[in-house]
Simulated scan of single mutants.
Amino acid sequence: MSFFSGSLAAIAAIGLLTVATPSKAGELKVGGNGPIIVKQVKLALNGVNDGCPDEIALIARVETSGPGNVDIRYRKAGGGASNVITVQATKTQNGKYVAKHVQPFTVDKATNTKYMVEAGAKVSPWVPVVKSCGLAGGPDEIAQPKQVHKAQLAIKGPTTTVCPNQATISGWVFTNYAGPVQVMIARKGQGVGQPTTIEAKPAASGQFIASFSRTLPIVTAIDAEYRLLVSGGSGVVSNWVPLKASCAIGGGPDNLGG
């Protein structure tokens, strides 16, 4: 099976970008019309839609010191690699020399991976490709169940003993889907606060992460522990996190509550 699969239909929407013909496998080479140097390599993702199958495209952009042929190769996380592909660097309207290439492929099942492209001794940053697909491949298949993997909580308390003061509380929920996540904060030995909805979004790591950050006012001494609970997360909770403040200077009624 080839590194990429899919039709070339996505190219029509890209405009002047074209797909080059793969060259022979081997070392990546730069040149053709004289020695040139690869200055920068970038990779972008185009055409990601909801549902599956979905035809998307990787777009490689290689900036060089002059005109000529450049060999590129796509790499997939986990060890997959494309054939060596030769593209030509030409002068653009802004005076730079750039080689562009579009690699279309079809995603027909749930995917969580990433790609990069290399040219000469230069490589692009990794680009994540993440799709949950839902009813992947057709109506007869079962949608992928939503799962909450873990929750984390962090609290940064006041750095002085003066009150009134404040602490900063931050939380993260890791899921296998993009969408709303309902969370609550519990104080040990007391009650659970009101539920709050946060949004899980694709992260650079290829995961889906929902996060929040807010301040808590402190006006009197406190020595407590808090944790994050995820509604509908099948019992997923964070670790207990301490919050301490002596409030040796100043004070007032405790308004952190449960």
Results as ranks from 00 to 15, higher is better:
residue 238 S to E: 03
residue 183 V to C: 04
residue 197 T to M: 10
residue 185 I to P: 02
residue 109 K to E: 13
residue 1 M to D: 13
residue 127 V to F: 00
residue 191 G to A: 12
residue 203 A to I: 08
residue 128 P to H: 05
residue 67 P to Y: 01
residue 176 N to L: 05
residue 63 E to N: 13
residue 233 G to W: 10
residue 51 G to V: 10
residue 217 P to I: 01
residue 161 T to E: 13
residue 220 T to G: 15
residue 29 K to D: 07
residue 62 V to I: 15
residue 69 N to C: 00
residue 107 V to N: 02
residue 57 A to M: 12
residue 243 L to W: 14
residue 78 G to R: 11
residue 214 R to A: 13
residue 170 S to Y: 01
residue 123 V to L: 04
residue 53 P to M: 08
residue 198 I to K: 02
residue 257 G to H: 11
residue 178 A to L: 02
residue 59 I to V: 15
residue 177 Y to S: 12
residue 107 V to R: 02
residue 231 S to D: 07
residue 204 A to H: 07
residue 223 D to G: 05
residue 12 A to S: 15
residue 30 V to Y: 01
residue 206 G to H: 04
residue 244 K to L: 08
residue 52 C to P: 13
residue 96 K to T: 15
residue 184 M to F: 00
residue 142 I to N: 03
residue 219 V to M: 12
residue 94 N to L: 06
residue 81 A to R: 14
residue 86 T to Y: 02
residue 45 L to A: 03
residue 99 A to N: 01
residue 225 E to L: 08
residue 134 G to Q: 06
residue 211 S to E: 09
residue 212 F to W: 15
residue 178 A to M: 07
residue 221 A to I: 02
residue 62 V to K: 08
residue 11 I to S: 05
residue 48 V to H: 08
residue 100 K to D: 09
residue 107 V to G: 06
residue 150 K to R: 14
residue 208 F to V: 02
residue 62 V to P: 01
residue 15 G to A: 08
residue 88 Q to L: 01
residue 137 G to K: 13
residue 125 P to S: 08
residue 181 V to R: 02
residue 88 Q to I: 13
residue 148 V to H: 00
residue 37 I to T: 15
residue 215 T to A: 15
residue 182 Q to G: 01
residue 173 V to W: 05
residue 219 V to Q: 15
residue 113 T to G: 11
residue 45 L to W: 12
residue 156 K to V: 14
residue 108 D to T: 11
residue 14 I to V: 04
residue 108 D to R: 07
residue 181 V to E: 00
residue 241 V to A: 13
residue 228 L to I: 02
residue 9 A to Q: 15
residue 181 V to C: 02
residue 139 P to N: 09
residue 250 G to T: 12
residue 60 A to L: 09
residue 249 I to H: 09
residue 40 Q to M: 05
residue 222 I to E: 08
residue 13 A to D: 03
residue 29 K to Y: 06
residue 180 P to I: 01
residue 48 V to K: 14
residue 121 A to G: 07
residue 64 T to G: 07
residue 137 G to I: 08
residue 215 T to G: 14
residue 249 I to W: 05
residue 68 G to M: 03
residue 149 H to V: 04
residue 27 E to M: 05
residue 150 K to T: 07
residue 107 V to K: 03
residue 153 L to Y: 06
residue 173 V to N: 01
residue 3 F to K: 04
residue 131 K to H: 10
residue 42 K to D: 15
residue 108 D to W: 07
residue 182 Q to V: 07
residue 154 A to T: 14
residue 214 R to M: 11
residue 117 V to H: 00
residue 199 E to T: 08
residue 22 P to T: 04
residue 69 N to S: 11
residue 238 S to T: 08
residue 253 P to V: 04
residue 186 A to D: 11
residue 215 T to E: 15
residue 90 T to N: 14
